[in-house]
Each structure stands twice: as structure tokens, then as C-alpha cells.
Design a protein around this nucleic acid. Sequence first.
DNA 1: TATGTTTAACTGGTATTATCAGTATAATAA
DNA 2: TTATTATACTGATAATACCAGTTAAACATA
Lengths: 222, 222
Amino acid sequence: MIGKVSTAEAVFIHLKKLIVGGELKPGDALPSERELQATLGVSRISLREGLARMSALGLISVAHGKGAVVSKDINIGSVADALLPLGFLKEGEHLEELYAARIMIESELAALAAVCRTEEQLQALDENMEQMGDRLGDEESFVELDLEFHRIIEDAAGNRFLSLMHRAIEGPVASLVTMHGASRESREKALERHARIMSAIKAKDASMARELARKHLLESKG
Amino acid sequence: MIGKVSTAEAVFIHLKKLIVGGELKPGDALPSERELQATLGVSRISLREGLARMSALGLISVAHGKGAVVSKDINIGSVADALLPLGFLKEGEHLEELYAARIMIESELAALAAVCRTEEQLQALDENMEQMGDRLGDEESFVELDLEFHRIIEDAAGNRFLSLMHRAIEGPVASLVTMHGASRESREKALERHARIMSAIKAKDASMARELARKHLLESKG
DNA sequence: TATGTTTAACTGGTATTATCAGTATAATAA
DNA sequence: TTATTATACTGATAATACCAGTTAAACATA
């Protein structure tokens, strides 16, 4: 009996194969539930549970009264949900793994931002740093501005896949990022490092931006 | 009915909040379906569709006759499924974005491998390169060994999150990776670059391994 | 007493049927 | 023609019954 899957799972696998196999292309409308139910020879319940799985993963999008269509793009929310158990990590190696991934992503975002950034984004970074300078004494505001700094860079990088991973990771490691209890001196140093990263991005020096971002995160970690 | 979301979606959101909020911890058993149905005041169908969503995302794991428990870990299959629409990308900027992410991941894996690699893994890389040397004339085998080389490095890096992203990306960009139609000379150069990466990993030089891997992928791309 | 079998009470899985609720369009009335 | 209404789709929800694994308590047996 090992290997047996439930009917709902079978429906899910079947539909997924149709999409992967190219029989159902992005944007295509699925047959109606009654029709699928008859074609696949399953009950409405199993059919709908299979559809629920598809929908949860963002593979299809269903609308009441209209029908279901194959998604054209990944659903960031779904991916983030699937990565949700990462938040359970408290200490130890798993958290280290996640942190390593974060450094990799952040530094690559900085490198890409150095290439793609617009003048508006440079200005946004400037404003952000100015505000950070004003809030050196306000820990909470500083932390929030710190996160915003990296979010601006993420936006400037213009890579949807990296943005997705960045956001999925941001939550779980937020507790680490937030330098809570850090000294004013450490905040001054962080702002200084931000300035250097910003300079590299402004100068379109991708390698420099990447390395500075990496060092920044490594140093702000301890 | 709560707000504008479906009942099944409301159930899903409710259960997710219980987990995120810490009321349900990883490994905890969920109440039985009949119980949840009564507590939430919804029909069995909606309840089960909500559970199906949870299950599809790998947030819970249900067993026939036993019950459902909160997952302790991310489900690679679920994440990969959610990323499935990436395979729709054919050409253009989206593929470029994915390729940039691939280079980032591969190079970081090489850097981590340089730190964590065991003697067995070094030996596996050695054997792989030896086989590649023997198959310089056999394009198909060479491509397969090429992929294996990077898979060994992925394993050696010992970072589950990066491994996940690596595997999710491997499929969609496979067509790019496979140097189909490349000359024997280009294969010789690729092998040479592999040897240099391997040396850096053996010497535990993370920065060197990262840079060499990055250059390798950039060069083998064209 | 100790052990093996049976049974009963859980659990989730599937199916049937009926009905509610959006949506779009064809038919109809102004 | 235009505005309204009826209708025939679509998915959403529900109630009910029953099937199918799992577990442990009850019980018969050695």
C-alpha cells in the first residue's frame, strides 16, 4: 500500500502534469468542475481538494462564477507560505544556513543594483540615509530604516526571483537583522557602511557593492 | 463567510495564524477534522479544502487514520511546485533574472563547499573530473557529468536553503546550462575551469572558489 | 498471569445530493 | 436602440452517509 496517493492528490498530480506537459498553457482556462469531475471520474469533493492544492501553490487562479485559469507567473505569497516553516528555526546550524543565504542574496542584490539603479532609487537611498542619521538615537526607527535601505536596493536590483527569496527570508531572520540592544556607536558604524555601499552603487561598481554588502552584513551580525 | 475570502481560504488563514502565532508548534497534532469543523463553524468540505491548502504547501502533514501534525521543516517539493511557473519562462529578461540567480547560488555553493567539504566529497569531485576527461568527445555524457559536478558541490556546501533554490532553478535553466552544440575545445576549457574551482575548494579558499565559479558560469554561458 | 485475538472507537477519505452565490449572455420590454 | 430581466452557466457551501486506516481497550485463551 506504500505509494498510494489519495484521490485529491491524484487529481493534483494529473493537473500538474497537464501544465508541465504543455497541454495546459499559462492563461488557459480549465474545464469546469462538473466537467473535470466527469472526465476524471472522481467526486466533486476530491476534485475540489485537488484544485485547492493547485490554488494554494499558485498554479491556478479560480474566480467565483467564472472558472479557473492556469497562472502565468509564480505567486510570491505561495512561495513565502511554503517557506514559512523556516521561521521555526531558532538557533543552531539551520539558522546559520538561512543567514548565509541572506548574506548571499543581499550582496548580490547590491551588485545588481549597482548596474540597474535609477536616479530616483539613488535619491531614495540618499533620503533613507539622511533619515537614519537623524534617528541614530531612536533604535526602533533606525531598525525600520535599516530594513528600508535594503528594500530599496532590492527594488533597484530588478530581479524578481531574488526579490522573492529576499522577502521570504526577511521575516525569519528579522530577529537577527534588527540589531536590538545595539549601541549608538554600532549604529553609526552601520550607517557608515551603508554610505560606502551606496557609493559603490552610485559608481556602478558591482563587485565593490557586492563585497561591501557582504562585509556589512557579516559585521553587523556580531 | 468572513470578508471577501472564501471559507476554505479563511480556514487556511486561521490555521496559518495559529502556527505563526505559536499556538500550534511544529510537531503538534491538530484537532480532528470533526472537532475543527465544529470549532470554526464551517462545513467539513470547507474545512478539508483549507487543510488541503495547508498540506499542499507542506505546512501540515496528514495521515489517514491518525491525524494532522504541523510540519517541522519546509517541504522542498512544495516550494518547487510553487516555483513551477518559472518553467514557463522562455526567453527575455525573466530568463536573464533566473540566470543571474543561478550564478549567485552556484558561486555561493562553491564558497561554502570550500569550507565544509569532506575528503569523500573531494574524492567525488576528483572522480567526476576524471570521467569528464574521458568523455570530452561524448557531448551528452559530458553535460551530465557537468551537472553532477555542480550537484556534488551543492551537497558539499551543506546548506539546505541554498540546495533548495539550486534544485528549483536547475530545471528551468537546464537548457541554458547544457552547452549543447559546444565544441570540444570549449569542453576542455570548461574542464579546466572545473579543475581550478576544485583546487580552491580543496585549499579551503572560499573567496577564490566563489569568484572562479562565477567566472566559470559567465564564460560557459556564451 | 501472560498472550494473542477481536472488537470498538477513534482518525481521515470519498461520495451523493441539494442548494447558495457570483457571472455573463441571451431574451425581452421600453 | 437601449435598458432590464430571465436564464444558464460558473464556483462555493452544506448536510449526510459511508468507506478505510489506526489504535487501544476488551476479552478469550493457554
